[in-house]
Simulated scan of single mutants.
Amino acid sequence: MVNQLLNVGWTIVGFFPVGYFWFLQGIHWPFYVLLLLSVASCFFPEAIYRKLDVSKNQRVYRRLGVKFIRRFAQDGDFQAGNGIGIKNYLKKTQMFERYHFCCLIFFQASSVYACYNEQYILAFTIFICNIIYNVYPILLQQYNRIRIVKFLRQHNL
């Protein structure tokens, strides 16, 4: 239950500046084009997402602060044997990564469009929310995947 409340809270905070921008701007064709482009990214092959991985080394993610951030994320601190099957959790990380990548594209495109419309403070706010709400969760999914694959190799699974 706490995980879900945390998730809803972060989503409201993350989406507020984007929603506010589009409320001020009005929902016209640019909104639909940007939304369509971002949703299309959900259908990229898994190989493309793997090419976007920051590193194959856990230390890189730790240096980026992922180990600290994972305390604030839903299911961020995965532990083997916590009731979720490892293979199911791997699929869940892929789903979360795709969702946040889709949002990342939409947030960033909205930020650029806000700059185009000379709404610089709002563009900067969207950019910062994009880092917190999308970039770090993507990094977290990549980090957890490295940890899980390492665990599977250690236990010959």
Rank of each mutant, 00 (worst) to 15 (best):
L104N: 11
F96T: 06
S38I: 08
C129E: 11
E97H: 13
P45E: 05
N117F: 12
L140R: 06
C42Q: 04
R50F: 14
C129N: 15
W29L: 14
F151E: 04
C103G: 02
F43N: 07
V149S: 13
Y143K: 00
S110Q: 10
Y61P: 03
Q58R: 14
N130T: 08
N156W: 10
I121G: 10
A40N: 06
M95S: 11
S55V: 07
F21S: 01
K56R: 15
A80H: 09
H100D: 03
A47V: 12
A40D: 04
G83T: 00
L5H: 10
R153Q: 15
R98E: 13
E118H: 15
R145E: 14
L37G: 02
K51S: 11
Y99R: 03
N117P: 10
S55N: 08
M95C: 12
R62V: 09
Y61R: 05
F127R: 08
Q25C: 06
E46K: 13
Y143F: 08
Q119R: 15
V8L: 13
M1W: 08
V33W: 08
Q25H: 09
F16H: 09
L6H: 01
F31T: 07
N57W: 09
L90I: 12
Q119E: 09
V8T: 12
S111G: 11
R147Y: 11
I131H: 07
F31K: 03
R153S: 14
F72H: 03
A40V: 06
I27V: 12
F16P: 11
N134M: 08
L5C: 13
G9Q: 13
V2K: 14
P45A: 05
L5A: 14
L122R: 07
W10E: 05
I131G: 13
L36K: 04
H155E: 02
G76R: 00
V2G: 13
T93R: 02
V33R: 05
L37K: 02
F16K: 11
Q25G: 04
A47M: 06
Y143V: 00
I138Y: 06
H28M: 05
E46P: 00
I121C: 09
A80Q: 11
Y116M: 09
L139Y: 09
F78M: 01
D77M: 03
S38R: 03
F101K: 08
G83N: 03
Y143E: 00
V39T: 14
C115E: 11
W22R: 01
F124W: 07
I131Q: 10
F23I: 02
T93V: 00
N130C: 14
I128S: 05
Y116H: 14
F151W: 11
L152M: 15
I138M: 10
W22Y: 04
Y99A: 07
V60K: 05
Y120F: 15
A40Y: 11
Q119A: 10
N134Y: 10
F23H: 05
N57H: 10
A109F: 13
G76W: 00
A114M: 06
Q74S: 11
C115S: 09
